[in-house]
Amino acid sequence: MLGEQPQASSDNVYAQDKIAHNENIIYKCRAFGAVVFGILAGVFGLTSLWGLLVYVISSIVISIFLFATLPKLSIDGLFTSWMSILTGGFVQGAMTYVLVWTLAYDIVYIFF
């Protein structure tokens, strides 16, 4: 994982661009999950807290899948901490989720 511009700290050396790339992939997974589960929540007509619950569940599901795809179930050489898998892109994904959820819900239930 030693990139061309390693940033030296005391004993760990990280290639920041590679780490950023990996975190971007997590964000993409989250955004994709937000779209899929947002459509689901909207079509099933979930409102208020139920919709929020579905987003949290989708986030957990995606985290589990990400854990499962990690080689040897360890973050060595991929991320700096476990939290980036658990919570990476949570807030940005929430915006996408709310948008898709609102759109799907409105299209199905509000108009006639």
Binding site: Y27, K28, A31, M95, T96, V98
Partner: peptide
């Protein structure tokens, strides 16, 4: 505004990094 902020996730899927 909701679309403006919500579409960022979609753009990252469609347009890449």
């Amino acid at each position: 505004f909701l679309i403006l902020f919500g579409l960022r996730g979609l753009f990252s899927l469609v347009l890449g990094e």
